[in-house]
Nucleic acid binder design. Structure first.
Lengths: 155, 155
DNA sequence: TTTAAAATCACCCTAAAGTATGACCGTTAA
DNA sequence: TTAACGGTCATACTTTAGGGTGATTTTAAA
């Protein structure tokens, strides 16, 4: 808890410490130059320089950089920026392997070809596709592909 | 010419004048508080405050405004109104009835459903789809649909 | 560590898809 | 008129897809 406060107000504490250091420096200058001729002028100059620097630093630090927003209307073709509809995928509880099969289905591959492509047996692909159809509430692969494209599951 | 120099160094002259004014103010403060207790501290504080302000002002005035240009690409949907690729249709010699079957295929309908939709027999649809596959040089309906979409035969 | 889900595979069976061939009819252009 | 084509339909057959069930293994989460 104590550390939390420390880290949270780290900047404020740091600035406070710096200010204290500055005052100490001024005091040292005061002592050092008190017996010297024109000590006052030197001291005033030191204050002026230091605080000018402080002002500059403060300004640079605190002023927000002006953000100039330029809006460029870029014609984007609807299918150019396809992004998977993750929400729908999770909603339908479609696994990554099932999605792979679905993508290959959409390319027109047969179950046998998909099996060869994924280095698994034909039966495995049949199981995947069956589960896919149940999850997507369709009866045929063509329906699955059509629905998948409509829902943004595949490009 | 003289005016040219004046206008050119206007800012520097202005700042110099302001600085002189500031020094005058300080001198006045010096005179005013010289007989007062803690005059030195008051004077130093005044210097600190004024020069801090000067520093801030200087920084704000002289530092180039950082124009952080943010480019936002606004997607403008060039919702490419689908238009049938007549050329490809003619090239592949696909008849109107075959195109109808192809469109219904793309919607995920089975041959039986297509037959019912078009009020013809299942065998007729089988013939149409077979001819379609030959003309399109594919083996399966899923391939036909994929290729048809790619060629712009169907939306 | 236990549990649940994912991934894998097999077997059996039915339904659908696809191939091949042949036939009939109407339209249309040479 | 006839050849070509599109559309229709049928039969027979092969291949692929899909449903149902059960099992094992791996992986990830509780």
């Amino acid at each position: 808890m104590a550390f939390g406060i420390l880290t949270k107000n780290k900047q404020i504490i740091l600035y406070g410490a710096l200010l204290a250091l500055l005052l100490l420096l001024l005091k040292w200058l005061e002592w050092h130059f008190v017996i010297v001729d024109h000590a006052f002028e030197v001291y005033a100059s030191a204050i002026a320089i230091i605080f000018t620097a402080l002002g500059v630093w403060l300004a640079l630090k605190l002023v927000k950089p002006k953000v100039h927003t330029v809006v460029i209307e870029k014609p984007v073709f609807a299918d150019a920026a396809f992004c998977v509809n993750e929400a729908e995928l999770n909603k339908l509880r479609i696994s990554s392997r099932e999605l792979e099969v679905l993508q290959l289905m959409a390319q027109g591959l047969s179950n046998q070809e998909i099996a060869e492509r994924l280095f698994v047996s034909l039966n495995t692909i049949k199981t995947h596709s069956s589960n896919l159809f149940i999850k997507m509430e369709v009866e045929r692969r063509t329906q699955a592909v059509e629905k998948a494209k409509r829902l943004g599951l595949i490009p």
